[in-house]
Amino acid sequence: MIPLIFYLGLAALLFSIGLYGVMTHKNGIRMIMCIELMLNSANLNLVAFSSYTDTLNGQVFAIFSIALAAAEAAVGFAILMAIYRMHDKINLDELNILRW
């Protein structure tokens, strides 16, 4: 049996990769993809815990959070599209009229 900590380590690594992506990418789509990665690494955690504690709540939670992630992506892409219509670009670091 694979020890639980392997799953946790993988999830933490995936989460960090997602974080790094959010912090460095300029492209909005990539950023949203990185956020999906973070959410899914949390899901991985949930499912792993669910198996190893022999409770089903975690898997139910994972299913809910997958649905939520889909909805989140929908809203995010819609905002990006509106931005693209206005500026003809989706590089979010160039969006800084609001600051200071």
């Binding site: 649905a67 909805a71 989140e72 809203v75 892409f77 819609a78 905002i79 599209m81 509106a82």
Partner: peptide, 12 residues
């Protein structure tokens, strides 16, 4: 899902 549907469609 309904809320994000409305929001996404409106914005897009």
């Amino acid at each position: 899902l309904l809320a994000s549907l409305i929001g996404a469609i409106y914005l897009a």
